[in-house]
Amino acid sequence: MIRVNQAGEYGAAQIYKGQLAVMGDNAPGSSAIHHMAEQEQRHLDAFDKMIAERGVRPTALQPFWKIAGYALGATTAAMGPRAAMACTAAVETEIDQHYQEQLDELESENDPELTRIIAEFREEELEHKATAISMGAEDAPGYPVLSAAIRLGCKFAIGLSKRI
C-alpha cells in the first residue's frame, strides 16, 4: 500500500508541475492547482517518510512516472484550463476508489497510522475532484473520452506500481 500510494502521490505532484509549467500563475485555475499541488506534496512527503521508516521498497517505475505525470499535466494544460481540471477529476476518481479499497482492507489490519493517513488524504483528494468539477472539468472538449483514457492510465499505473 505504501509503495503504490507513494508512487501515485509522486505522479500527482508531477501532473501539477506540468500543468503549472504550461499555464503559469495567472491562468484560470492556477491558484487552485497551486493549492492542490501543495497538498499532493504533503501527501508525498508523508509516504516518503513511511517508506523510509518501514523499509518499503519504492517502485522501480518512479522515473517513468515522473515523465508520464509531467507530460499528462503539460498536455492537458495545453488543451486549456477545463482539460487540466478534467485531468484532476479523472485522476481523483480513481484515487478515491483506490484509497477506499485500501481502507476496506485495513479494517482487518491493526495499522491506525496508515488508516488515518489514507482516510485524511482521501478526503483531500475528494476535495480536489469537487474543485475540478466546479471549475468546468466536465465541460472540457471530449471530456468522456479524455476522462476514460486518464482513468484507464491511472488503473494501469496503480497495477504496475503494486508489482514493480
Rank of each mutant, 00 (worst) to 15 (best):
Leu72Gly: 07
Leu152Arg: 12
Gly136Asn: 05
Thr93Met: 07
Val22Met: 00
Met1Trp: 11
Glu92Met: 04
Ser31Thr: 13
Glu113Trp: 08
Thr93Trp: 04
Asp96Trp: 10
Ala68Cys: 09
Ser134Leu: 11
Pro112Gly: 06
His34Trp: 13
Asp25Pro: 00
Arg163Asp: 05
Tyr16Ala: 03
Arg122Tyr: 07
Leu103Pro: 02
Thr131Glu: 09
Ala37His: 14
Met135Gln: 13
Ala77Asn: 02
Ala140Asp: 01
Ala32Asn: 09
Lys155Glu: 12
Glu9Phe: 04
His98Asn: 05
Thr75His: 11
Leu72Pro: 01
Phe64Ala: 11
Ala84Pro: 02
Glu127Asn: 14
Thr115Ser: 15
Gly142Pro: 06
Ala157Gln: 03
Leu126Phe: 07
Asp111Gly: 07
Arg116Ala: 15
Ala83Ile: 03
Gly142Gln: 08
Gly142Trp: 07
Leu126Asn: 09
Pro58Lys: 12
Ser134Cys: 09
Phe64Val: 14
Thr75Arg: 14
Ala21Cys: 01
Ala130Met: 12
Ala130Thr: 14
Gln41Arg: 13
Ser30Leu: 01
Gln100Asn: 08
Lys155Phe: 09
Tyr16Ile: 02
Pro141Leu: 12
Cys87Gly: 08
Glu94Lys: 14
Pro141His: 10
Ala130Phe: 10
Ile117Phe: 12
Gln100Thr: 12
Pro144Tyr: 05
Glu109Met: 13
Ala77Gln: 00
Ala84Cys: 01
